[in-house]
Amino acid sequence: MRAARSPLDVLAADSRGRGRGPDLGLPPGALITRPGRRLRRAVPLLWVSDAAVGGDCLAGHRGGAPAALGLYPVLLQDRRGLEEWWRLRELYPERMSDPGDHDARQVLREHWSGAVPDPEEGAEGAELIAPFGRDWPGQAAPLIAGQDPEAAAGALARDLVRDGGCLPSPRLALVPAGRGADVLAAIGWGGPANHENDTARIAAVLRSWEDRFGARVVALGFDELHVSVAAPPRTRAEALAVAAEHFAFCPDNVWQGSGSIRAYADEALTGSAHWSFWWD
């Protein structure tokens, strides 16, 4: 049986899978492949630029020809000791399910139950999740976007790449995915592996955030995720509701970061158009 064509096949300019993709105006780059079934052929997984790109590069390739081909641009950032982690067999798409098979509310409810402190921790544990209790408080209400989600994504990319930002040398990547949330499962990203092994469940929550808050996936590190937000919470009540979701989504943001949901809501969420996550 002939393998289904990938949108990335258009970038396979020669036998090494390298090429500029002249119709897309891409910088020099290469396809990252994985073995296909029964090792009959290498299957393209994503395309990555050879060199670091500037902050305007992401916005320049959102929409247009890449979108028409079914390719979604994101930025990838390596880190010391894990340079070019996307080449090191750290991607496992075959292990991931379909984001559409999961309900974000159920995923968050299950993760909340697994993240809340044990009752034995007493007042300290109760303070960490206050003003909520051990029961899942439910999803935050949708918020009205203050700007276009794609404009917010472009602005965040520029902020993250400029001097002193979180992305000192990002690569441009193109992934066969119809929306940013699905990029994680499409490439089999394992960043949240110590919290959730099936990244499609993480993607299901991101889909919900896309719809409710105008969120967009901007960049991935080995175990980091950067998301732009067109409709960030503006009040403490709104921020607390979102903070509960973030605690379920990525407990390390609170456990090893702000120290409590209240502090996290105040420090990281209120008025912030940048949501970042790191899993230990």
Results as ranks from 00 to 15, higher is better:
A186E: 12
A186W: 02
A186V: 11
W189G: 04
A193N: 04
T199Y: 00
T199C: 01
I202R: 02
I202E: 00
A203D: 04
A204M: 09
V205L: 08
L206N: 04
R207T: 09
S208V: 09
S208D: 14
W209T: 01
W209H: 03
E210H: 05
E210N: 08
E210S: 09
D211E: 11
R212Q: 14
F213R: 00
G214A: 13
G214T: 14
A215E: 08
A215L: 11
A215I: 13
R216G: 01
R216V: 07
V217Q: 09
G221W: 02
D223V: 13
D223N: 14
D223S: 15
E224K: 15
L225A: 07
L225N: 04
L225S: 02
V227E: 01
V227Y: 03
S228A: 13
A230G: 14
A231V: 10
A231Q: 06
A231D: 04
P233E: 02
R234T: 13
T235N: 07
E238V: 03
A239P: 07
A239Y: 05
A239K: 09
A239Q: 09
L240Y: 02
L240A: 01
A241P: 01
V242M: 05
V242S: 00
A244R: 01
A244S: 07
E245R: 04
E245G: 05
A248S: 09
C250M: 07
P251E: 06
P251G: 10
P251W: 11
D252A: 07
N253P: 03
V254R: 08
S258E: 02
S258P: 09
G259A: 09
G259E: 05
S260H: 05
S260V: 08
S260R: 08
R262E: 13
A263V: 07
A265G: 10
D266F: 03
E267Y: 10
E267M: 11
A268M: 15
A268C: 15
A268E: 15
T270I: 15
G271E: 12
A273R: 14
A273H: 03
H274R: 14
W275L: 13
W275P: 00
